[in-house]
Design a protein around this nucleic acid. Structure first.
Length: 290
DNA sequence: TCCCAGGTCCTGA
DNA sequence: TCAGGACATGGG
């Protein structure tokens, strides 16, 4: 990896397997905005950055070399070899097509608490609406980060900030019936933060069981949290899109979500999480099964 | 107006 | 264990 620092930006030279639109629009993250020039402005780790691709180079604007090595290198999972993951996975024509379609996907390393709350909000909701609710919560309860390209940005609220948030204001953020779940989780995490931030070091079964004890965290949400913030890649979360693409291309229409998960986890093993992301992005962008 | 969304919870077999 | 309805909100 060759890194070049320029004024207020970092350039990653000749970075393979990195496509901003694949990374941000594959459903793992919600705090991004596509700009007119097709770059992505992203809020994470209390910072605002803008990510663009120019030929084979990745440009991260509004950052410096220190933040790159302390934050973004891990956030963008730059130490993982996605070419090797892809060549392991593409053992059938369906996966070949899905991988080819989303060839620049990477699984981000996101904050545990933010991911928990984000996926509690995702229940029975649409992605644009999930993004809206999260933005509302950030504006109301997060810290002001600053202005970038004429727009003010706010960090995702901490568990203290959400625990202290009046429930009626959380409702005004359009969180709906998930409002109580958000506040309850935040209150609980004040006492259990050490446990939550240590889940990535626990076994899959132990971490899953713990997450399921939260209201609003069922099997699907728990597995998304495990995959997107706790480096548990042997899980295959099944949502409406993954159900459609699997029933359309791999299994019969009668197959239950539980059976789909088992089928996929047996087939893809410790790469299940990556396979799920390629399939989700492929299904959603192409309206598979709709 | 009705249907549905990156589901979960509750209830009753 | 599992099917079926309720749940806020907004877009099609």
């Amino acid at each position: 990896m060759r890194i070049k620092e320029e004024k207020n930006k970092i350039i990653i030279k000749d970075q393979p397997d990195f496509e901003p639109c694949h990374i941000f629009e594959c459903g793992q993250a919600f705090r991004w905005e596509k700009q007119k020039d097709s770059s992505y402005t992203v809020v994470s780790n209390g910072k605002v950055i803008n990510v663009a691709k120019e030929k084979e180079d990745i440009i991260i604007n509004n950052t410096d070399i220190e933040d790159f090595y302390n934050i973004w290198q891990d956030y963008f999972d730059l130490n993982t070899d996605y070419s090797s993951i892809k060549s392991t996975l593409d053992t059938d024509e369906i996966m070949k097509t899905a991988i080819n379609f989303g060839q620049g996907i990477r699984i981000l390393n996101q904050d545990e608490f933010e991911t928990m709350i984000s996926f509690i909000i995702s229940a029975n909701n649409r992605i644009p609406m999930i993004k809206k609710v999260i933005e509302n919560l950030s504006i109301n309860f997060g810290d002001k980060i600053g202005e970038y390209n004429g727009k003010l940005y706010y960090s995702f609220p901490t568990y203290e900030q959400l625990a202290n948030a009046p429930i009626e204001i959380i409702r005004e953020c359009k969180a709906g019936f998930r409002s109580e779940r958000i506040k309850e989780a935040a209150i609980r995490i004040i006492d259990e933060k050490n446990t939550v931030y240590d889940l990535r070091n626990k076994s899959y079964d132990e971490a899953l069981e713990y997450l399921l004890s939260y209201k609003g965290v069922g099997n699907k949400v728990a597995n998304c949290i495990l995959l997107f913030s706790m480096k548990q890649f042997s899980t295959f979360p099944v949502d409406v899109w993954v159900r459609r693409v699997m029933q359309e291309l791999y299994v019969s229409k009668m197959t239950s979500d539980k059976e789909i998960r088992k089928f996929a986890e047996d087939k893809f093993g410790h790469m299940s999480g990556y396979a799920q992301q390629y399939l989700f992005y492929y299904a959603r962008e192409n309206g598979i099964g709709r």
